[in-house]
Amino acid sequence: MTVAVTAGTPGRGRGGRRHRPLPTWALGLIGLAGLVTVVELAPRAGLVDERFLPPFSDMVSALADQAATAEFWQSLLETLRGWAIGLSIAMVAGVVLGILIGGIPLLRAAMNSTIEFLRPIPSVALIPLAVLLFGTDMRSTLLLVVYAAFWQVLVQVLYGVQDVDPVARETARSYRFRPLTQVRTVIWPTALPYMMTGFRLGAAVALILEITGELIIGSPGLGRQIAVAQTSGAVAAMYALVIVVGLIGVVVNVIARAAERRALRWHPSIRGEVPR
């Protein structure tokens, strides 16, 4: 939070000021270093109880201990696998249904209220149902992940299909493109930026639900390890695992953005020429 704020605001205030502002990434690092210092010093100075917030160096050494166990790597793998499978299912379902529903006006009108009803249901409200169906199996968590990520993707794809330029659509029609060609050459590229956004949002939500599922349902993964560490009083280890989860989130976001840039070289937001 603090990082984003310090990094964002001064970067934009170009010109007018006498001294040149630091580059954004440098400010980001300074913010991060500040956070680490606070977390290190506050417990040592006795400002907070070490039982609740151990110094940062303790977390790091706990992390090193974790990294030496096979269980940690196994859990990490379980989490990543659950996340990836869930997100993939949500992406495929969201994109296919989004193009279908968005492409057929009648279907869209019919589905609108259904979507508006189902979408706001928080995924965690489905936990009892998931447990009823699959017990503490990884499929329980998968259900949550898919449900949560699916709506993110679907809604974005629907926006994307809606955004197809009417002139581009008419061009495709005037050259008698078959429906599938229209999807491939006009609808798909237009909706792609939205799909990417859907992917990014879906990836974040999927990770949240994956960890939530593991924490509450107890399906295998880092979330369960966090719960185990907490109940056994290994507070530093618990924080270490939380940091790992946070890092996964950062890496996922970075990858999603890089994929976006590659796929959208032609797009006005990416191509970086002066807008007309």
Binding site: D165, V167, A168, E170, S174, L192, W266
Partner: peptide, 14 residues
Amino acid sequence: AVVFQEYGRSLFPW
């Protein structure tokens, strides 16, 4: 074949 008034939007930028 049709050449549209809004030719810029009729070409596919991708």
